[in-house]
């Protein structure tokens, strides 16, 4: 395996690990702070933190999958 492949794998793993750690930290926060939702503590009046976490996880996984597909397509030589 070349340096290029190793570095790419490290970036991908780092990205997924960071996402997991961020979501874990946020769910701990959501359990500690249980506020009734209102126009003034939700983003734009309706977006809860859980929905933002779900969007973050979804986009990270989509980006991870597409980056891996792109890498394999244009550099298939391991």
């Amino acid at each position: 395996m070349t340096f290029f492949v190793v570095f790419f794998i490290l970036i991908q793993l780092g990205s997924l690990t960071f996402m997991a750690a961020a979501i874990y930290s946020l769910f701990k926060y959501i359990k500690q702070f249980r506020f009734d939702p209102s126009d003034y503590n939700l983003l734009f009046g309706f977006l809860h933190l859980r929905q933002i976490c779900a969007l973050y996880a979804l986009l990270t996984i989509i980006f991870f999958l597409y980056a891996t597909f792109f890498f394999i397509k244009h550099y298939g030589n391991f």
């Binding site: 790419f8 970036i11 990205s15 960071f18 961020a22 946020l26 926060y29 983003l43 933190l49 933002i52």
Partner: peptide
């Protein structure tokens, strides 16, 4: 690699700012 690292960092940084917005109350 440079582009990929930059895009990944920017993507995570944006969401960190959004989460920090929620954590200040």
């Amino acid at each position: 690699l440079t582009l990929f690292l930059g895009i990944t960092y920017t993507f995570h940084r944006i969401f960190v700012h959004v989460f920090n917005y929620y954590l200040n109350v």
